[in-house]
């Protein structure tokens, strides 16, 4: 009896005590990154993850002079590091899989619109036509660990590098004795394991009208990546027209696909990041067809009329909103 009562007391005490994670806020990869890690080796793991994020930031930045990407764009060719090769190979593969809706070669267009330097400019048809000729996967040549770019071609890994980094941080954490981790890299979230209290991860999807607040909530346990691409994230206005930063690689114009945001849920962070951009460019109908042909991701779409659509798998995780289920 005494033992039972003691056990009850211990359980009550442990239920009231929530373990505190080791955590850090970093300014890297052009965003704010929050890392929380629970477990015995949380501090060591946090140190390792911080190093990985800073390394990715230095390697994949398109604007930092001396970064691996900067040098490739400047020189037109480079011998690639293992990490850069890995990321680029996945970028090419996902570009091919999405029929070019995700395209790592759009940097000349991004620069033309002024999104990098934030010196915005609405290009005319001639400028667009000339710049489109510099883009496309055929301008990128990979020979083992060496890459060469066609004349004037440049890469931008901004739509995939944070996802890749989150994924590789998650894999790095597997070598530490930790219980759980949450990595929030701007609009990218990567969960690892299950929270110490056993409750579900609660990930809000930003309301495109008021992005600091959630319009819907995803609840799940275990390790996943959740990534959102939205037209409200970066844009400028000229003559009363809003021009956002997600460019359609075919037209060179901001994608007008009828969507305000796409959230992708997947086991793989790199995949989720690239697909969130690709599905936004495709629009709801083509993205739905693409999802039906796939089995490695789920998605939540918010249309420009404010309606929310969720693929079957995403629907089972979605709450706090009214939505339409997309059946397989």
């Amino acid at each position: 009896m005494k033992k039972l009562l003691l056990l009850a007391l211990v359980l009550l005490l442990s239920a009231c005590a929530q373990p505190e994670p080791a955590q850090s806020d970093l300014f890297a990869m052009d965003t704010i990154i929050n890392v929380k890690i629970w477990g015995n080796e949380a501090e060591d793991a946090l140190h390792a993850v911080t190093q990985k994020i800073n390394d990715s930031s230095a390697r994949f930045s398109v604007t930092t002079e001396g970064s691996e990407l900067y040098l490739l764009n400047q020189d037109g060719s480079a011998a690639l590091s293992e990490d850069f090769s890995s990321l680029l190979a996945q970028a090419v593969s996902l570009s091919e899989r999405t029929g070019g809706a995700f395209d790592p070669t759009v940097y000349p267009l991004v620069r033309l619109w002024g999104f990098t330097a934030q010196e915005y400019h609405v290009p005319n048809a001639y400028e667009l036509e000339q710049t489109l000729q510099l883009c496309g996967l055929q301008k990128l040549h990979l020979f083992g660990a060496n890459a060469t770019l066609g004349a004037g071609a440049m890469l931008d890994l901004g739509a995939i590098a944070k996802g890749w980094t989150g994924q590789h941080c998650a894999e790095l954490l597997e070598s530490y004795n930790i219980d759980a981790a949450l990595l929030a890299l701007g609009g990218n979230v990567q969960t690892v394991g299950t929270k110490p209290d056993g409750s579900a991860w609660v990930i809000g999807i930003a309301n495109p009208e008021t992005p600091s607040e959630a319009i819907a909530t995803l609840r799940f346990t275990g390790s996943r990546a959740v990534v959102t691409s939205g037209s409200y994230q970066r844009y400028f206005e000229e003559d009363g027209i809003a021009y956002h930063h997600i460019l359609n690689p075919q037209s060179g114009l901001p994608a007008q696909s009828g969507l305000l945001s796409v959230t992708v849920i997947a086991d793989d962070g790199t995949l989720a990041d690239a697909l969130s951009t690709a599905l936004f460019v495709m629009g709801l109908d083509d993205a739905t067809a693409f999802w039906r042909e796939s089995d490695d991701f789920e998605a939540v779409f918010i249309t420009d009329s404010g309606e929310i659509f969720a693929s079957e798998g995403a629907a089972s995780l979605l709450s706090d909103c009214v939505f339409t289920v997309i059946a397989r």
Partner: peptide
Amino acid sequence: IPNRLLISFSDGGDMDALVG
């Protein structure tokens, strides 16, 4: 981000993170 400033709120509710 340029000035490395972050202002967070004590009442975060039960949400772990916000994507978007």
